[in-house]
């Protein structure tokens, strides 16, 4: 597992990881601020858009804020792979380890670990915001019931698996900018539409973010009606299947290619 350590060392000896971590925490923080800020606030039609801070439903909604971290982990995964091509360090990497399958495996494992770390970091931030908010509102903090553990697990698992998506996509596309733009367009435009528009949700629930949502699902009416989602176990299977596909893609494209 020296190779995994080497991959982690690669990541932690450049500035990228903590910049991404900060941006991710910022993004999670904004989501949390909106969730907490608008919780229980009366909307135009009378009913509050989000449940009040003292309720369990509020806590369920707030804990999902960490799921927003997955896109940043995905970008990190993309850069773990494409950065090697961009700076041609892939040459040295393959000279050191000519059996390329091992390099890809090490990257995937390192990506998983980093994804877990990022997921945990966003959960910590969430805890730091949600627990005081609930206590101040006089509610009862739920950590081990009310579906909260499943949401936490979902956040961490999603984050870890999105790292694999990023690595696979990076191996396939290799051009850093193209891969990142592609990933952002996919997540924020295509998936967002597929999972938000009811007519498309039959397809949308099978996309990575659709599947991820089923892991952290809390049934909130967002104005579009109940989201059509897979059961949590099926969502998890779909995510893992995507991760496997991306891992295979990463291996196949990397092992055979000439490095010129």
């Amino acid at each position: 597992m020296a190779l995994v350590r080497s991959e982690l060392q690669k990541l932690f000896t450049t500035r990228l990881w903590w910049i991404m971590l900060l941006v991710m925490l910022l993004f999670t923080g904004i989501t949390l601020a909106v969730t907490i800020g608008f919780a229980g606030v009366e909307g135009g039609q009378g009913a509050p858009a989000l449940p009040g801070r003292e309720t369990l439903e509020f806590q369920q909604a707030a804990w999902t804020a960490g799921a927003g971290s997955s896109i940043f982990v995905m970008v990190l995964g993309i850069i773990m792979m494409t950065g090697e091509y961009r700076y041609q360090t892939i040459t040295t990497t393959f000279l050191t380890t000519p059996r390329r399958g091992r390099v890809v495996t090490a990257k995937l494992i390192a990506g998983l670990l980093v994804g877990v770390l990022f997921g945990l970091a966003s959960l910590l931030l969430t805890a730091a915001a949600v627990i005081p908010a609930v206590l101040i509102a006089g509610g009862e903090v739920a950590l081990l019931d009310g579906g909260i553990p499943r949401i936490m697990l979902g956040v961490v698992a999603t984050s870890a698996l999105y790292a694999l998506f990023g690595i696979g996509l990076g191996a396939l596309v290799r051009n850093q900018i193209a891969a990142i733009v592609g990933a952002i367009v996919w997540v924020f435009v295509i998936e967002a539409l597929l999972t938000a528009i009811p007519a498309l949700q039959g397809v949308g629930k099978f996309t990575p973010s659709g599947a991820a949502q089923s892991l952290i699902a809390v049934q909130i009416d967002t104005g579009f009606g109940q989201a059509d989602l897979l059961p949590a176990w099926a969502g998890a299977s779909v995510l893992v299947a995507y991760a496997l596909v991306f891992a295979v893609v990463a291996s196949l494209t990397t092992v055979r290619r000439d490095i010129t």
Binding site: A2, L3, R5, S6, Q9, K10, T13, T14, R15, L16, G83, Y87, Q88, T89, T91, T92, T93, T96, T97
Partner: peptide, 24 residues
């Protein structure tokens, strides 16, 4: 092989240490 195959943001020492780790 090429003069440019380094990550610009990594220090010279870290560059070598990453390889040391991978190469045992």
């Amino acid at each position: 092989l090429e003069a440019t195959s380094f990550h610009p943001g990594r220090t010279a020492r870290d560059h070598l240490r990453v390889i040391c780790t991978a190469a045992g």
